[in-house]
Nucleic acid binder design. Structure first.
Lengths: 185, 185
DNA sequence: TTGACAAACTAATATAATTAGTTTATAGTC
DNA sequence: GACTATAAACTAATTATATTAGTTTGTCAA
């Protein structure tokens, strides 16, 4: 295989993610990514399927990264400790990757089986942690949704600057986690 | 003032909102809104300040609508009843106006004092309901953030199709509210 | 050395947003 | 009832982005 340049799918996604986190997701265009990589726009099509493909690639990458981070956070911990650790890591992932995080919301469509799989894996990490609580199976699934809702709502508002007032956001987050844990058993 | 046509700022925003809710927020462009109204694109500039102005107008409109809906829901109710009523209305607002709801996240920038005011009013509704709990003042503000986080996270995931599995979302939502209320006093 | 081919390129097209400048319809005035 | 000022429409032109088609080029392997 003759790589004319050191470029490939992964490198393109990385460049896009870097732009998204530094300049904001809305500034990620084929034009800006191509400029970042020092190539012309159409050349990107050798590595991603247009803008939609780029965004899909970012989402897939992001879900993998987040899943791995959560799994690592919960390794060797149980119950409330594990929940707390995952929550903290979830938030710090979103705060350090605000642009990338925003791509995660895209619902995987029919064809995007890879993204659907990755999302399922993310779900499984949380489910594994909840296993220690011996919840009825449906109840565990509801709690996965509730965990995600709480985390996503908080960080999405935080990233968007929705918490305007001068009130410690760390405090709010800790209270949120406390409420989640209190509601769990 | 000679209105050549029955068009004004409000009518433009309404058309945009209708498009956003029916076709998705991403399909709201100056082109699509102009087409919807039967005018050419530049004519829109007589009523809104470009795409940014249109989006700002939608956000402002949405915050007002949601605030009013929440206030109405909580009128004549107290404590858990009021919280529950607000939560249900918050969710149904988001589900009936998925496109409009997505515009609400935009953080009000410095100049957008009208949007900042509207956001403050939304916050006040929730604060008024929490008053019945006699929380310490900071604690009440934290709880406002927590309420918003829970609501936003749930509906944002729901709208995005993030709850893929065959598990009743109404059930999940009710459990979420229960956890919120349990964490309140 | 050469040839296959992946990966770059140029060129052309379509859509969107924006600005500048022009036309037109109506509301209020004479 | 005609006149005029003006808001609100318009056309035209510019810029940016995404996409597709077709061409060139550099490198790896034979």
């Amino acid at each position: 295989m003759p790589p004319k340049r050191g470029l490939n799918h992964e490198a393109v996604i990385h460049a896009a993610v870097e732009l998204a986190d530094k300049q904001g997701l809305e500034s990620v265009t084929l034009a800006s990514v191509a400029a970042q990589l020092g190539i012309r726009i159409p050349s990107l099509y050798n590595h991603v399927s247009g803008l939609a493909g780029l965004q899909r690639g970012m989402a897939l990458y992001g879900v993998h990264q987040l899943t791995e981070a959560l799994r690592r956070a919960a390794t060797g911990k149980a119950k409330a400790d594990a929940i707390r650790a995952m929550a903290v890591v979830y938030r710090s992932f979103a705060l350090t990757h605000p642009g990338l995080y925003r791509t995660l919301l895209r619902a995987p469509s029919e064809e995007e089986t890879d993204l659907a799989e990755a999302s399922a894996e993310l779900l499984n990490v949380i489910l594994d942690v909840l296993a220690a609580y011996d919840l009825e199976s449906d109840r565990a699934l509801h709690m996965v949704r509730i965990f995600r809702s709480m985390m996503h709502g908080f960080v999405d508002l935080e990233i968007a600057g929705g918490f305007a007032m001068a009130l410690d956001t760390d405090d709010t987050f800790n209270q949120l986690i406390d409420i989640l844990i209190k509601g769990l058993p």
